[in-house]
Design a protein around this nucleic acid. Structure first.
Lengths: 156, 156
DNA sequence: GAATATCCGACCAATCTGGTCGTATCTTAA
DNA sequence: TTAAGATACGACCAGATTGGTCGGATATTC
């Protein structure tokens, strides 16, 4: 659960690809797609969404392709997620739309919104630059918890 | 995106319900379901999973029902998510299974795992007690970012 | 033994998602 | 001016996931 969509994965791969390219020239959808065994049409669709959201700029024509619209440090992972899958929701009621059957009686709405905000902050603070700087975490590696350990609250 | 499943919502609602009940006695699936307009059979299925994961204990029979297996502070939101939807994954490759077509060439695997770990830490640190203490966040409220703001990295 | 519970698996319909296809349009270069 | 290489865009499909339902088995109390 809390799964990222495949399209989001592809988007992040493409963003990193563009951020890491030393030549800093436009890369075509085909080039990126083939680098990672991604279906070309799907990659193209993803890239188009990134353009529409202003994260990439595109050039049509023979030597066209895609470039980062901003330096890698200026684009957050959150922005990429939003570009592909729309606003970061978590629950049906996160943003206004009272479309959930339990809306009136729900007792976890506010607490969940708080959690959502914390997660959103993490995603907003993580830039493509950080993603591109693969070798070694900049933050101290948080201990991965296995199921039994997660059962109990660690800090509190 | 990053949506919680409805079952997880229901599970959290039930956990909070049980944590908030001053009488501290077993509540039946019916009682919980009716409190929040949740389909009874579905609530029952969710509660059963919570029992199987050791977060609740159940008593069958006429005055049976469900109780928290531990004090509310000892159960994390992460544990509830895992009980309902299995291990917190984010990507297809998060836990061993190399079932993703891009596995061999993927360039964002490690960075994404780092992000996943940070999110898992947040969920592991948030207890049912915190969820039950609805009125007012214990942590300073993180600013909710609207789409345009999220586009740029805030801290970095 | 009747009533009230949990337990468990099968099942279904609707939605979501990954992926495909066809076509239009733009831009460069020969 | 024309061909090639590229993005843009919308329609479409099949498979997976999910929310929800149903039927029956088992346990416990009165």
């Amino acid at each position: 659960m809390l799964r990222l969509s495949k399209k989001t994965d592809y988007a992040l791969m493409a963003m990193k690809h563009l951020a890491s390219d030393p030549r800093r020239r436009a890369a075509s959808a085909r080039e990126i797609a083939e680098s990672y065994d991604i279906p070309i049409e799907l990659m193209a669709k993803v890239l188009t969404r990134l353009v529409r959201s202003g994260l990439l700029v595109s050039h049509q024509g023979v030597h066209g392709g895609y470039e980062l619209a901003q330096p890698p440090a200026a684009t957050s992972v959150a922005a990429v997620l939003e570009a592909i899958d729309g606003p970061l929701t978590m629950t049906a009621c996160t943003h206004g739309d009272h479309e959930c059957d339990q809306f009136s009686k729900c007792n976890v709405r506010d607490p969940l919104r708080r959690i959502r905000d914390r997660i959103a902050a993490i995603l907003a603070e993580c830039s493509i630059l950080e993603i591109a700087a693969d070798p070694e975490p900049s933050a101290p590696p948080v201990r991965v918890m296995s199921s039994p350990a997660m059962r109990r609250v660690s800090a509190l």
